[in-house]
Design a protein around this nucleic acid. Structure first.
Lengths: 301, 301
DNA sequence: TACTATCGATTAGTTTTTCTCATGGGGAAA
DNA sequence: TTTCCCCATGAGAAAAACTAATCGATAGTA
């Protein structure tokens, strides 16, 4: 008699809903919408052949059978998660020394670092904050986060995010209707960095607008300063929206003023590390994890 | 710290492959192709960040880490399967009395009945064999399998399969190249039942062929006899290929001589049962199970 | 009592995932 | 050798999952 498993995606959705006794909270836990949970639970109920939740008004409760069921599967899923985490972290130990500037650190690493450490408890992460690029080969860091244009000679680089959106405070574009046209954006002050005038030019080109002169560029030494200036409400900036400004976008403090994005090759946020005969598993684990964080943020807008 | 589960479909594929130490056998267990297992395992390996199988030549073995992992997840999946089976069967007990003819029984029920009984151990299934339709309301059966045309007045009916293909022994169409054109099929002897001349006419109509006369029908009292005659190699028959002739199709003893199928409303294999205020859960469980069996057979051709 | 906010259900349409088909390559067995 | 028998792979098809928008119901609030 072969083992007969239910659909495991449905099971996961159901189990989360049962733990929370809320479809909405389950949705949040699984990074999906409430509708997704509702669909999955319904499909599982149809497969099982009976209701698992009693819906009454705006809250839900478990049937007796379903409660027994959850009591059995929650530990099983816990074990699976535990085993997977152990497997994933095995061999990931020692020390991982990273170099990055404070801007990238505070925006995309520090807020999530606790998750990374929980995932790889045997790995000690050390961050060297440095405004300037360090020489990854001669210094003793394992890898460095870099924001800007590659390629970086003699180094392996992994792209974390290279999709740029034009961002602004709502106050700067007050009275204008979003999204703004490229023509409207061309009239606004544009915060840039030395390497990124080309970014704006690529953006206008992608918009199909011929801009030869008259743009009001304001140059900053790095993207963090450009973002600060944008945040002061005196310019728009072309930035990697989801990872850098996720919180402000979610609260509405910062707006994406045009849905048009550009994704230039070799631009954006990267991780670089020296080419070695044996890849450093700690670095690969960090890259994989950071990509998953960015993918998660991206799915939220 | 939220629980971090791996992709559970990938996990299931991997676990089956690990138990069998064979991707092919795992594929068979899960009713998919070997390629599907290979893709899923590879995706899991990429997520985990390391190899789980050592591939050498034509056999595979587990890495030490992977072996530990499997040892942890196999019991967890077993528990889930156990809990799901218990949940699904709870409340399904007592007796289920079914009426059907010997043909349907031997083709689509008896070969799989052990599975059904394993799924619902507290339910006693009794089959009344009857060549003629029994009156489901006045007799003491809970439901009846019927092969033919509905609707059946005053009864609820669930369609199990209503997709008809033209079938034949290879010997009858020896020398002709498969698939046969409708014109070629029109020249062959066509086994039918009294209610099913219309089936053939619908088939030719679906094929876009105008047939007014000259068809060589040979009528039989029921589909079982028509199928027997087809199996003797003296006619083609229009039948529900996957559930009725799955084994012969798999071995090549019987061929689908045209990929064109018709699915007439109210025709084919149905389960009928009396309309009651409370639906009989045993009947619903049987219907759901039989549909899943037919879906499985269908996916195999 | 009406108003508002919150929750789950539903439908249609899109996106993502999964699977198959058709091959290719490599080692073991004949 | 040659032949099998596996697993790998890429492209495309099929199926599953998800989202967006909206509805109806209910509990809390004015």
């Amino acid at each position: 008699m072969p083992r007969r498993l239910p659909n495991l995606n449905q099971l996961r959705a159901f189990e989360a809903a049962a733990r929370h006794l809320s479809f909405r909270d389950a949705a949040e836990e699984l990074f999906v919408t409430q509708a997704a949970i509702s669909h999955q639970v319904k499909a599982l109920e149809e497969d099982i052949g009976r209701q698992l939740f009693v819906r009454s008004g705006r809250d839900v409760s478990l049937t007796d059978e379903a409660a027994t069921f959850v009591a059995a599967i929650t530990p099983a899923l816990d074990e699976i998660a535990q085993a997977a985490t152990t497997l994933k972290s095995s061999g990931i130990s020692g020390e991982l020394k990273l170099s990055m500037n404070g801007f990238l650190a505070s925006r995309i690493v520090t807020p999530f670092l606790a998750e990374f450490k929980a995932l790889y408890p045997d790995l000690e992460v050390k961050i060297d904050y440095s405004r300037e690029y360090v020489d990854v080969r001669s210094s003793n860091v394992d890898a460095a986060l870099r924001y800007g244009r590659g390629p970086w000679e003699g180094l392996v680089s992994a792209t974390i995010c290279n999709r740029y959106f034009p961002l602004s405070l709502p106050s700067l574009v007050d009275g204008l209707e979003l999204p703004l046209s490229p023509q409207e954006i061309a009239k606004l002050p544009l915060a840039t960095t030395p390497g990124h005038n080309t970014g704006w030019m690529e953006w206008f080109q992608a918009a199909g607008v011929e801009i030869t002169s008259g743009l009001n560029f304001i140059e900053f030494a790095d993207a963090g300063l450009a973002m600060d200036y944008m945040t002061s409400g005196r310019a728009v900036a072309l930035l990697n929206a989801e990872p850098l400004a996720e919180h402000e976008l979610a609260t509405g403090a910062i707006k994406i003023i045009s849905p048009l994005a550009v994704s230039p090759e070799n631009a954006g946020i990267h991780i670089v590390y020296p080419e070695t005969s044996e890849p450093n598993p700690n670095v690969l684990a960090f890259i994989g994890w950071l990509k998953s964080i960015v993918a998660r943020l991206r799915s939220k807008l």
